[in-house]
């Protein structure tokens, strides 16, 4: 644990150093990616993992598992994230969302999460510790591509590490529970890859620069998720860029 904390602190220190480094104007982008060369190497590694392991596994899964089974697995993955959402919502003062996540976890727990008994009702908004750090006003830091995990920022990857530690599901002991926890990331990866099979293949095969496309998509998706976590006055309207274009 202390090693992890030290690693995170080092990552933050690096991120601030990187922010202080002066870059030529032409090299600056709206996206904060000072470690681009290293990130690209890790991205290439992740692509190889996808080519040789994840894509074939996801392809087999989507071709052999019937649609209700696939839906059940998606429900299970979503259900297993509810305790974390409840904890993080509580930390952010979003008590209604915390209550909703707890309720969803309890009700769908009757089917071990495979059936969404709350379908059609208000769904809790997913919250992680990265979002909690955003609410606390912590800067997101540079973009990082993490082996196996893919796109992140220093803040989101720190959040992931904390989420692993504070996950209430860790309270369940026994071999079955620990097996379920150990296989969850793999099940999640295969299910997610199968759901977005064509989209991810399109990025891989039809991009001029798959790295840049994946990075852009990550930032846009994450920015939307974080909109209600940003302190007042810091909410950025992504449409500014589009509006500005037509006023120039």
């Amino acid at each position: 644990m202390s090693v992890m904390v030290r690693l995170l602190l080092s990552a933050y220190a690096l991120s601030f150093l990187a922010a202080c480094t002066s870059m030529p104007d032409d090299e600056k982008t709206a996206i904060n990616d000072p470690f681009e060369n290293t990130n690209r190497k890790i991205f290439a590694f992740n692509l190889a993992v996808d080519n040789y392991a994840l894509e074939p596994a996801a392809n087999l899964y989507r071709k052999t598992a019937p649609e209700p089974v696939q839906r059940g697995v998606r429900n299970y993955v979503s259900w297993s994230g509810m305790p974390l959402t409840a904890v993080n919502s509580g930390l952010q003062g979003k008590f209604e969302n915390a209550a909703l996540a707890s309720l969803t976890f309890l009700v769908n727990g009757l089917t071990f999460g495979f059936v969404d008994l709350m379908e059609g009702e208000d769904q809790p908004k997913r919250e992680d510790f990265g979002q909690t750090l955003t609410s606390a006003g912590l800067n997101q830091g540079p973009y990082l591509v993490v082996p196996f995990l893919g796109s992140n920022t220093v803040r989101s990857v720190s959040g992931r590490a904390v989420d692993m530690v504070i996950n209430p599901l860790r309270a369940f002991s026994g071999k079955t529970a620990s097996d379920a926890r150990a296989t969850l990331p793999i099940v999640n990866a295969v299910s997610l890859r199968a759901t977005h099979f064509d989209t991810i293949n399109d990025v891989k095969n039809n991009s001029l620069d798959a790295y840049a496309r994946a990075r852009s998509a990550y930032y846009q998706h994450r920015d939307k998720l974080l909109q209600d976590n940003l302190p007042k006055g810091e909410v950025e309207d992504d449409l500014d860029e589009f509006e500005t274009f037509f006023t120039e």
Binding site: A212, S216, A217, Q220, D238
Partner: peptide, 22 residues
Amino acid sequence: ENISMLKTQQDENTTLIRRNAG
């Protein structure tokens, strides 16, 4: 799903040009 096709295309194109010395 919150991802602008055009913005993504722009990021991809400008990154390519930037990495080729503008």
